[in-house]
């Protein structure tokens, strides 16, 4: 069996999130090698164009999975011009996801920056399904501006299960906003936590994750209970192509979710 061999998946539905971000529902049937866990990813590709790693943004449901994709690279730009019914070739799931088991019985803090909310969305789905398994659940979400917020229509439903706080970096001149303004770290500073019993899952630009983790550590959080999702260039997803190597670790296999402990202080990283 060739682990690099992808299977066909058709686009069932497309939701426009923001300017260049869309959420795709792919019908995969039994093409995936396992039930994808939150935080894992697929290699999604188009023949003649290439492949790119993309996190799951939803749990498997009726043979379909979700990916939220920002059209920025060769492959994602190509997918960004596809329509419902078009087919991609994908393979996965790969990597180590969010350690939900460790969060059971604890308070769970989700910290998301920009499109970094996408890989946390399946975690939220899990919480909705099993709310009683967790203590207090908080979602802090920051984006550059209001137009860049993902999953707008779902916030209301989420709020029955978790406490949601949104901040935007900047406002259009003269505009009023229903959200607070400022960086997500300011939001964190204002948030009261029981640091002793908090597990945090953080996903966003690496500089945001660094500052967010630092803020949490100052609040007394335990570094081994802070988890970050790293983004690296990947070609294979199976610890062979070497692109995602980070201090001897393969982000594709050993991550992409790591505890802050595991990756802080590494050369070529910001954590």
């Amino acid at each position: 069996m060739n682990a690099l061999k992808p299977s066909k998946a058709a686009i069932k539905n497309i939701t426009h999130e923001t300017g260049d971000v869309r959420t795709y529902e792919f019908y995969v049937g039994d093409a995936l090698s396992a039930d994808p866990a939150p935080g894992q990813f697929n290699m999604i590709g188009c023949p003649g164009v290439g492949e790119a790693p993309v996190s799951f943004s939803g749990l498997l449901k009726d043979g379909s999975i979700r990916h939220t994709i920002k059209a920025v690279g060769m492959v994602t730009d190509f997918i960004g011009r596809m329509e419902t019914g078009d087919e991609v070739f994908l393979r996965g799931p790969y990597g180590r996801g969010w350690p939900l088991e460790q969060a059971r019985g604890m308070d769970l803090l989700l910290g998301a920056g920009g499109v970094g909310l996408a890989p946390l969305r399946p975690v939220i789905e899990k919480i909705v399904r099993e709310r009683d398994a967790f203590g207090r659940v908080l979602l802090l979400y920051g984006a550059r501006d209001e137009r860049r917020l993902l999953f707008l229509k779902e916030y209301e439903a989420w709020q029955d299960f978790l406490s949601l706080h949104i901040t935007v970096d900047e406002l259009a001149a003269g505009a009023a906003s229903k959200y607070s303004t400022g960086l997500i770290t300011t939001l964190l500073d204002r948030t009261e936590l029981n640091a002793e019993r908090t597990v945090a899952f953080i996903c966003g630009p690496e500089i945001m994750m660094r500052l967010f983790c630092r803020g949490l550590l100052l609040k007394g959080a335990n570094a081994s209970r802070l988890y970050v999702l790293l983004e690296r260039r990947m070609r294979c997803g199976i610890a062979q192509c070497g692109h995602c190597q980070h201090g001897g670790l393969f982000v594709c296999r050993d991550g992409p979710v790591f505890s802050y402990n595991e990756v802080s202080g590494f050369a070529d990283g910001l954590l």
């Binding site: 690099l4 290439g50 070609r235 294979c236 192509c241 070497g242």
Partner: peptide, 30 residues
């Protein structure tokens, strides 16, 4: 380390996916 590269035929009828050696000294590697 390797890179995975797709090549399309100009008649748009076939594409070949191959892998070839890649190098971490190359600027685009990471």
């Amino acid at each position: 380390c390797y890179d995975v590269v797709d090549e399309i035929s100009m008649d748009m009828k076939t594409a070949v996916r191959h892998r070839q050696l890649d190098a971490c000294q190359d600027r685009k590697f990471a």
